[in-house]
């Protein structure tokens, strides 16, 4: 973190890593990479490297947490101590506890929870390396992992951030843009239902800027949704080939 006021957008209108304002970072997704989990996914988005795993549906432990009419989703978002510049203590921070909650609430609307009463699923998210917008990449990966686990879902959940730096509205903030920029808006979307399941913001935006930022983030979600589908297809086409 530097104190000097770096320009986040250069004269050509390009960002620190050479992206255009409305450009996503390179994204790589892999599905079904952990053998013990029912479903799993790995995502790289820029320098973000995040693993998501889904266990269940299984009997709820402790039992008093089980619900008679639906399943319970538990979610843990956790950052590895080496995932950031200065070592992060492995015990969950207040930020991680809040993010675990909002990520869970971004995934719940898509799951047919009433199909599995008295059970629970665990969604574990490990951030191995963080470079801004990790909650969005985590949601993107977790929803793919849930699909891989065969959890009945209405839709995938695709997430992307948008924000404002140097008076420009930009897509998919990386760490420096998040820290030095003037607003950050993470959004998660169920693309076929037009349902926004995560919306947060910090920074300062006028009503018009906010509207623009949200619609840019939603465009990003649609692009990421296409990649999620592709990643799932790639996985299951290869499974089919092995069986044949």
């Amino acid at each position: 973190m530097s104190q000097k006021t770096e320009k986040l957008i250069d004269k050509k209108g390009l960002r620190l890593d050479g992206r255009k304002p409305d450009e996503l970072r390179p994204i790589k997704m892999e599905v079904g990479i952990l053998s013990n989990a029912e479903g799993s996914a790995y995502i790289e988005q820029g320098k973000n490297k995040i693993l998501a795993a889904v266990f269940g549906p299984k009997e709820m432990h402790p039992k008093h947490l089980a619900l008679p009419d639906r399943m319970v989703i538990r979610c843990r978002y956790h950052m590895a101590p080496f995932s950031v510049q200065e070592r992060k203590s492995p015990s969950p921070s207040r930020r991680e506890i809040e993010l675990s909650k909002v990520i869970r609430e971004s995934l719940e609307p898509t799951v047919f929870m009433e199909y599995y009463p008295r059970t629970g699923i665990d969604v574990f998210i490990e951030v191995l390396q963080a470079d801004g917008s990790t909650r969005c990449a985590s949601i993107t990966a977790a929803s793919v992992a849930m699909a891989d686990a065969g959890i009945p879902m209405r839709d995938l959940v695709a997430a992307c951030s948008a924000g404002k730096v140097d008076d420009t509205i930009i897509l998919d903030l990386m760490d420096a843009e998040d820290k030095l920029g003037s607003a950050d808006v993470p959004v998660a979307l169920m693309p076929n239902h037009n349902a926004v399941t995560l919306l947060q913001m910090d920074g300062i935006l006028t009503a018009e800027e906010f509207e623009k930022t949200v619609s840019l983030a939603l465009e990003g979600c649609q692009k990421i949704y296409a990649m999620q589908k592709e990643a799932l297809k790639t996985r299951y086409v290869s499974v089919k080939e092995v069986e044949e």
Partner: peptide, 15 residues
């Protein structure tokens, strides 16, 4: 100006 937002709960909002 809008300066902070938080969505909560297990439902969703339309744009």
């Amino acid at each position: 100006n809008i300066c902070a937002i938080q969505k909560g709960g297990s439902g969703y909002f339309t744009v």
